[in-house]
Write a protein that binds this DNA or RNA. Structure first.
Length: 306
DNA sequence: TTCCAGGAGAGAG
DNA sequence: CTCTCTCATGGA
């Protein structure tokens, strides 16, 4: 089936910008597992062609996917609001059409617990092995994958089983949070009705979920665009390009919110992915921007420590 | 071999 | 409050 009129939308940038770990590109098509079924999506202009491993009611399915891909949102309006300088303007031009997904909550919670002190390719590998071991086997026209493990499956997993999937020291965090979901201490359903602040507090009460991971969950699953995950790259970007000094997370958060407004999460995603994408490109102009960013941080650190 | 990866927690000051 | 150290893992 098809989704029509997906204007100002880029499937590539949306699915390859580090917010979801479950999509694979094969030729022109993206294969991924979303809430228990394999999806195959291709984009031609403003039309998305979608195949599912399960039978779907077309109207409801299209509505669900439009929400998942954030297609209904007026993103050009948001980008116009946050386009305050040359850095943002370049990121917005380069990544035009990138959207912030609205992903399933439990999978997002578990995935970003695993993301701490880790890199994207390893996170993807851990999630793939966990799904193979604890999820359900799925097929779509010869493509095979596994559903994301349920909270119950991970809550009852042994430490050895989790370590065998490569979770490392995060195994306890993952199992503890899975148990909290099973016994209701972490009320996922109720959290979807909470404010950004309330949901974030609920998440941060869990062992293994700090402010950054909580913000990732609020932004990539709960639709709170005011959430600002501050990782090392976002910290660097704000310290060098905007504040031009060392700054605490709280200072960065206050500046970013006042500068970009209530949709600071969207601005963050464009800056983050732009910097990451450029590090893989042999584009002199882009690389020089990165390099000047990094060296400026190093000089800043030197001057403050000496 | 060392360093780093979309960090968090415990402890010290 | 801020700073520092450690945590398991694998690719560069």
């Amino acid at each position: 089936m098809q989704i029509q009129n997906a204007t100002d939308f880029s499937l590539k940038y949306t699915l390859e910008s580090g917010q979801s770990f479950r999509w694979n590109r094969i030729d022109n098509a993206y294969y991924g597992v979303v809430e228990g079924r394999i999806l195959k999506i291709t984009q031609k202009g403003t039309t998305l062609c979608v195949e599912s491993s399960t039978d779907e009611d077309e109207t409801r399915f299209v509505s669900y996917l439009r929400h998942y891909l954030d297609i209904g949102r007026d993103v050009p309006k948001i980008l116009a609001e946050v386009n305050n300088d040359a850095y943002m303007d370049r990121a917005i031009q380069k990544l035009w059409g990138m959207r912030i997904l609205n992903q399933e909550l439990w999978e997002t919670v578990a995935s970003f617990i695993l993301s701490q002190n880790n890199n994207v390719s390893r996170i993807r590998g851990i999630i793939r092995r966990l799904s193979e071991r604890f999820g359900e086997h799925l097929t779509l026209a010869g493509y095979e994958d596994y559903s994301f493990p349920s909270p119950d499956a991970l809550a009852t997993a042994t430490n050895e089983e989790l370590l065998a999937c490569g979770t490392g020291y995060r195994a306890n965090y993952l199992r503890d949070t899975a148990e909290a979901v099973v016994n209701g201490e972490l009320p996922l359903t109720a959290m979807k009705q909470m404010s950004y602040f309330e949901a974030k507090q609920e998440l941060m009460h869990r062992n293994g979920i700090g402010e950054k991971v909580a913000d990732c969950i609020c932004l990539f699953s709960l639709g709170h665009l005011a959430a600002l995950p501050i990782d090392v790259w976002i910290k660097r970007i704000f310290e060098t390009l905007y504040l031009r000094r060392r700054a605490t997370h709280r200072e960065i958060r206050e500046f970013a919110h006042s500068y970009f407004g209530d949709s600071v999460g969207y601005a963050q995603q464009y800056l983050f992915h732009y910097v990451h994408e450029c590090s893989n490109w042999a584009d002199a102009e882009h690389l020089s921007l990165i390099e000047s960013t990094v060296t400026a941080v190093e000089k800043q650190c030197e001057s403050t420590t000496s």
